[in-house]
Design a protein around this nucleic acid. Structure first.
Lengths: 120, 120
DNA sequence: CTCGACTTCTACGAAGTGTAGAACAGAGCG
DNA sequence: CGCTCTGTTCTACACTTCGTAGAAGTCGAG
């Protein structure tokens, strides 16, 4: 249960890019700008996807303030890393998966990994 | 476009577990066994999901033989590694993702990674 | 109390998935 | 050659998810 639709992904991208919490209206405006021209969504549309994202545990909101303020629960990087870990978890032979994974990684990324593993 | 439904996942698990190609009937029987009791599916059901998996590029079949024989295109490990790489690809700050990922990995897995990175 | 901004409820169409019957095709038998 | 199996493809329907938004409800300001 981790797949996001296109609009859901766009909203998450906005929330991940700005650390401060945003209102639905604000997000709606930024969506319009981002997508260029014909992307004028109704605010209720944005609110709906925000609710769905909240139910998925990706977004939380402050209910106290009058225009509720929404913010991503975790960073984009945390989220992605968790997805990767989830994928790894489905495998029985994790070593084999890691071997294939390392094989598909760029040299720069391999260097990063070496550094991280050395220091950790 | 990589998410699998529950039945699709079960079928892939069977195909991944046995390297030889299987027929739809064979898979249907093995699904019945695996799930324990009430999981008696119609063969057409299995054929439908096999077609869908074929369209997704996860399964290929020999059309020559009369009961067509189905087999996974790649191993479970390759598939999982590709999913992980795909997730990594969506990130902008890949180093940060890798850092989080390494942080979430067991010590045994970290050791495996060190070995793999050293030899590669 | 009323108005307006904001949120929640309800809804609908498209796509994906589980499920399978109906229709079709080819191989062997009588 | 035509029937009957066995197996494949077509068609279909219900359920869920997602994009999209109008209708209805709520709450603070005036």
């Amino acid at each position: 249960m981790a797949s996001l639709g296109e609009l859901e992904r766009s909203v998450m991208d906005l929330l991940w890019s700005a650390p401060e919490a945003s209102t639905a209206n604000d997000l709606r405006d930024r969506l319009a700008l981002g997508e260029g021209q014909g992307k004028d969504l109704a605010v209720t549309t944005v609110l709906t996807v925000l609710s769905r994202l909240e139910k998925k545990g990706l977004v939380e909101r402050e209910r106290g303030t009058r225009p509720h303020r929404y913010r991503a629960v975790s960073t984009r990087e945390d989220h992605t890393a968790r997805l990767m870990h989830e994928a790894l978890g489905t495998a029985t032979d994790r070593e084999a998966v890691l071997a294939r994974f390392i094989g598909s990684v760029t040299e720069a990324e391999a260097a990063t990994l070496r550094k991280l593993l050395a220091s950790g």
